[in-house]
């Protein structure tokens, strides 16, 4: 959407009014841009996943109580009061949605991509998840069952993808680079 769409003008007008009335400062917008383009993003989640691949005890803690396991990281970004991590296995593939709005684990993944918030994903992923994931470029193996997690309250879900088969060939520092945002939503292998 261009900078001068009707919504952009209305947002600009509303921002100006709120600044004049003392409810908002112009810097607040710059702070938001800095926070979500620099400090909060999917790399936070990727670090957690990579560690779970190599540290069995951390993996167990993460799956038992996600919030407690990630609390030492002190991720900022809000929207995660209780984190539940769901692990992909050879038999199960997990995928996350919020059909009612667009709830998403901001602190671990940053702000959601546009498609996550669009009606196409929100309507179809609960009804035909295998087809939607396939259309998005990943084929869930035919024998695997799919669990869909609809974030309908304040719990936020993160998918723990399966590690690559040649995990031991990687240096520990390389592992977060193998984990994508889409893998942690569940629409990619990892």
């Amino acid at each position: 959407m261009s900078e001068r769409s009707p919504q952009s003008i209305r947002a600009e007008a509303l921002e100006a009014l709120l600044i004049e009335k003392g409810f908002l400062k112009a810097e607040d917008v710059d702070d938001v841009i800095a926070r979500y383009s620099e400090r909060v993003g999917p790399l936070n989640g990727a670090q957690v996943v990579a560690r779970a691949w190599t540290d069995k005890r951390f993996r167990d803690d993460l799956l038992r109580d996600g919030s407690a396991a990630v609390s030492p990281y002190q991720f900022e970004g809000g929207q995660v009061e209780k984190l539940v991590v769901v692990a992909n296995t050879p038999a199960i593939h997990n995928v996350v949605v919020c059909t009612l709005c667009s709830c998403y684990p901001w602190a671990l993944l940053g702000l959601p991509p546009k498609w996550y918030k669009d009606p196409e994903y929100r309507s179809r992923i609960v009804r035909e998840p295998r087809k939607v994931i396939s259309e998005m470029g990943f084929e869930v193996a035919a024998g695997k069952s799919i669990k869909v997690w609809d974030s309908s309250a304040e719990i936020r879900y993160l998918v723990l993808p399966e590690p690559p088969e040649n995990l031991l060939q990687y240096d520990e520092n390389e592992l977060p680079g193998l984990v994508s945002r889409d893998g942690m939503i569940g629409v990619a292998e990892r």
Binding site: E3, S5, S8, I33, L100, W115, D118, S123, M136
Partner: peptide
């Protein structure tokens, strides 16, 4: 929207930025 019929393919936009234009960040800040 869950389960509603008739919607088409999920559309990825090329860059998938957090904000497409300053106004979106302005709305987020508000």
């Amino acid at each position: 929207l869950g389960g509603r019929q008739g919607f088409g393919a999920v559309r990825r936009d090329g860059e998938e930025k957090s904000f497409h234009g300053r106004w979106e960040a302005s709305v987020f800040a508000m």
